[in-house]
Design a protein around this nucleic acid. Structure first.
Lengths: 340, 340
DNA sequence: GACTGGCACTCAAACCTGCCAAGTGCCAAT
DNA sequence: ATTGGCACTTGGCAGGTTTGAGTGCCAGTC
């Protein structure tokens, strides 16, 4: 038997009630709380079909039904109209983000805002280095043959890294290197930087090459190693408030939130094409996150995806609300970054 | 009745067993597991005294005893010899910290190490700005009347901040400002920087003063606002592994770990005088942390306290082990930072 | 053919009950 | 001061019973 409109309606009602009450929902409760226009017996038949199709399940005989991952998936794909944010919420977002003074500030405000709005754990990736262009490279001698290389992108991201050099460079060499380096890479796409920097040492006198290549190596390492690496996290405490049914799964989730590599992989699959990506339970193959859903989207001005942000929470989350919040925050962040 | 030696011994045994088994400990189990040389009846009498004095308590009649905060306090003050780390642990610390390339790297390795060693949540404060000296100030124009001010300390800490200026400064002015600023503040104690910078604008031509004072203001703000602010956290997932008795308290603890202001207050009271500071349960007046203990110490070369680091966990933690780990890590970090 | 009321059935959760074992406090004896 | 002995308390557990929410199915109605 195919899934007709009323059955979809029933599924929607089940998901909504289950998310709200956090308890298996039965046929009688459904007809009481929603205007379905049919009796509970009919609903029971529909539920039996939905269960056959794998959209819902019962924890045990004689209990109500609970949505499966597949059920949530259908709910998200077909049923939930994006719930518009309230005017108050939109005002809150705007005023919260407007005071930002810095990229660091923007990111940290964003992630806290998202956590507060969704009451779940929020993650924001810094603008990807590989998709930015270089604005400036600065070299600062620290004495003792140590050199600080500071890299600044057009998105306002600042990466620094210390290099140990074999010998302390002359001030004049440093100035020369700085000038050439900036002439070489400023305004460049990051993909092109690597190829340019490689043959930089050959432009210098032989005895200076070890210094130059030290700097070049660090620069490249920054790009590769820390390229996508930085993320900000907030709202982990929100996860603890979720029922104790969830807390068997709390530890792997907290671990994932600390393991930035894992986090980035989870964030990574967000595409800019669809407005908001939702990955439900088992769909994200990471072990230990089978009861966790992830709502992400890309941000960035226009079509340019600078990075991703999103929210993690239990599969039984308020998808429409979360998706709306994630989408809205991404839009505002894109605006703010664009203004720079 | 005063607390004689045997009663102390009994208290120690209770704390150790309770920490190990996580269950109230009775008189009989005590004589079985420790060589106390007396019968359980005697122990019962001692326990009654200890309870009268408020060092232990019973969850309910006919249950064993559990240490109170006061009991842990006595245990920590009087009874626990610092448990030396194993050679393997010391080797692990050394090799883990030695690869660090950067201050950021040192801090992030340290905090993860501490979390792993103690299996609890670890916190490390960045070297305090107010106790560092300025090594260098760098100004980088970002176009559009935006200026990046980068501040580098002798401890390797790098703080950056963007200033919006009323107008785009000339390159020459920028160079001049950079030179004067560095001449003024390089090598200076941070306490003295504020007073020096205040009258910097008056050294410049009238039309340049707004630029100069913009930079000066940002510099001062960096000092005040972010002065102590930065901390790194790791190991929150460890807290989730603790028994479900503890998880009522998990949410406020996670909140505290996210609220860096709170964290810094908690870290702040560590003194460099005593090797390791322990604050037990109610002793840290923060609400919601009444079942949490905090083990902190200051780090820094010699007697100079650059910052604090420590561990948070349930009151029923392995104090000797945790104190040893915190102390050892602080020593190693101090060494590493000193070498720079 | 779709919907409905009714009924028998299932089963987790809540409740009761008695029992056990751990643990205590006290006391008289050493 | 220490100890063995004993009476007492009480949380937790095993067992059995009841309750009630919820289902599936069927016969009847529109």
């Amino acid at each position: 038997m195919p899934i007709d409109d009323r059955k979809l309606e029933v599924l929607r009602a089940i998901v909504e009630d289950y998310v709200a009450t956090q308890e298996p929902v039965g046929s009688k409760a459904l007809v009481d709380r929603h205007q379905l226009g049919v009796s509970s017996a009919t609903i029971r038949n529909d539920m039996a079909t939905l269960e056959d199709e794998g959209y819902i399940t019962q924890p045990h005989t004689s209990a109500g039904r609970v949505p499966t991952d597949k059920g949530y998936r259908l709910f998200v794909d077909r049923l939930s109209k994006v719930k518009p944010l309230s005017a108050a919420e939109r005002r809150a977002i705007r005023s919260f983000l407007e005071g930002a003074v810095d990229l660091d500030d923007v990111i940290s405000r964003t992630v806290r805002l998202l956590a507060q709005l969704t009451r779940q754990a929020a993650v924001v990736q810094y603008p990807s280095l590989t998709r930015s262009t270089v604005r400036h490279v600065e070299l600062v001698g620290l004495g003792q043959a140590r050199l600080l290389v500071v890299l600044i992108t057009d998105t306002g991201r600042v990466e620094q890294r210390v290099v140990e050099l074999p010998a302390e460079p002359e001030d004049s060499l440093l100035g020369d290197l700085r000038a050439r380096l900036n002439a070489l890479v400023a305004g460049l796409d990051f993909a092109s930087v690597a190829s340019k920097v490689v043959d930089l040492p050959s432009q210098f006198a032989h005895e200076d090459r070890h210094v130059v290549s030290g700097v070049a190596v660090t620069l490249l390492e920054s790009l590769v190693e820390r390229g996508e690496e930085r993320v900000a996290v907030a709202g982990t405490a929100n996860l603890a408030r979720y029922g104790h049914e969830f807390d068997t799964e709390l530890e792997p989730l907290l671990s994932a939130l600390e393991e930035h590599v894992v986090l980035l992989r989870l964030l990574g699959q967000a595409s800019h094409a669809s407005p908001v990506t939702v990955r439900i339970g088992q769909e994200n193959a990471t072990s230990g996150l089978s009861a966790t859903s992830i709502v992400t989207t890309a941000y960035g001005p226009g079509d340019q995806a600078l990075g991703s942000l999103g929210v993690l929470g239990p599969t039984r989350m308020d998808y429409p609300g979360t998706m709306a919040a994630v989408g809205a925050v991404a839009r505002y962040v894109s605006q703010i970054l664009d203004a720079n």
